[in-house]
Simulated assay, not measured.
Amino acid sequence: MKHSFTDTIFEILTKNFGEDAEAIFNNSELLKYINQKTVSAHKGSKARGSFGNLYAIYVLVEDYIKEGFHKKRDYSKYEGAKFSALFKRQRELPFGNKLQNHALNQRMNLEFRKYFPTCDYIPIIRVVVTQRYWINANLIELEVNKKDVNIAESIIEIIDAYAASKRSAFESFIETCERLKDIENEQPEEIKAFILGLLEPNIDARIFEIVSYSILKADYNDQTVYFGFTEETIEPENLKLYKTGRTNANDGGIDFVMKPLGRFFQVTETTDVKKYFLDIDKLEKFPITFVVKSTETVEKLTERIKTGAKQQYSVDAIVNKYVSCIEEIINIDKLKNSLESVERKGNMPDVLNEIIKQSKVEFNYEVEE
């Protein structure tokens, strides 16, 4: 598959290997896999970045180079890298500060096998008992055109270039937000158009979660409920939405929490009903609102969930229990309606400010400035 970042991959290979670059690429499943995972490089901040599996490769290849195995051929005698050191290094890399251990442990190998089912090797070798890891040297020590070729340093260069491209796109995104903030009183329509552009099915899941939270928080904040333990103590209270942590975190299916109603919100980009039921199960069937990155109508999404429930569970009582746990489905159209409501109240700047704030936190931007 050829895409815009493929040219960068070939530039690096040509710089390092000259006329052998194309043959090296064609003979390397690992380079082809990296090519697959870097398709979003030049699509801007709104395209999903692939860092988990790439950084699993990166830290192992980096360890391989640090120990000098790209220059000597005795990697088979190496005791392996410690998991704790690899995991720590992943989180030091750009956009890697919240990565989990899934890629190192199994996810990367499984996906690689999906792309290259006939390949004799898996990229990551590990011994679970000792928590030691190796990159599979067969995938980086190649023989091309009767020459011994080591692509370890090129892999590091390629993934570094991809991360730099994604960081540049994100910095441009933040700069645009800051510029719009400066002209919010003069050109409110431009701000609205920008935010609406972030509510598209193809945007990065993290950006979608941030934008949906920012819109809903501003919209709910002007809605009032009355609470009190007795009739005499009942008082008005605005609805307040809170983020529970980083996006895509392993938090048991809670992305936002609303006070004082105690509503739970889960943001999802999938329409796979099994994922919905998994989140419901994790919360022990507590009612949950799903914010779905989809332009399908709420009616279609609801019907799909019901159909999936009937296929998975043939007992009506179980089906009805799962469906009753879905308090509300908020799709892209509902988010747009909420944005219209926010605009009518004159609170559009609040949405933009929240997007800037949450984006900087999410991408560790202020720390790295």
Rank of each mutant, 00 (worst) to 15 (best):
E284S: 11
V319P: 07
T130K: 10
K2W: 02
K282P: 00
K217H: 11
E157G: 05
Y75F: 15
K360E: 12
S154Q: 10
I24Q: 01
I191H: 08
A56N: 08
K192R: 15
E67M: 14
L93I: 11
L139T: 07
S341N: 10
L54N: 14
L104D: 01
G49M: 12
E368F: 07
E29P: 03
T271G: 05
G52E: 07
Y322S: 00
Y115R: 11
F95V: 05
V323Y: 10
V128H: 09
I215C: 05
S212M: 06
E369F: 04
E153Y: 03
A41V: 04
R246S: 13
K82F: 11
L339H: 00
N221H: 10
V59R: 06
V257I: 15
L241P: 02
Y78K: 11
S324L: 02
R91N: 14
D204W: 03
E232V: 05
G80S: 08
E340F: 09
A85R: 13
D272E: 14
K345Y: 10
D222K: 13
T247C: 13
A85Y: 13
R107L: 12
E328C: 06
A218Y: 02
R246E: 14
F290W: 04
L60D: 01
D222Q: 13
T230P: 02
F208N: 06
F256C: 07
V144L: 07
K293E: 01
E175K: 14
A47R: 08
I288R: 01
D182P: 04
K243Y: 07
N364V: 05
G253W: 00
K306Y: 12
I156C: 06
K334W: 02
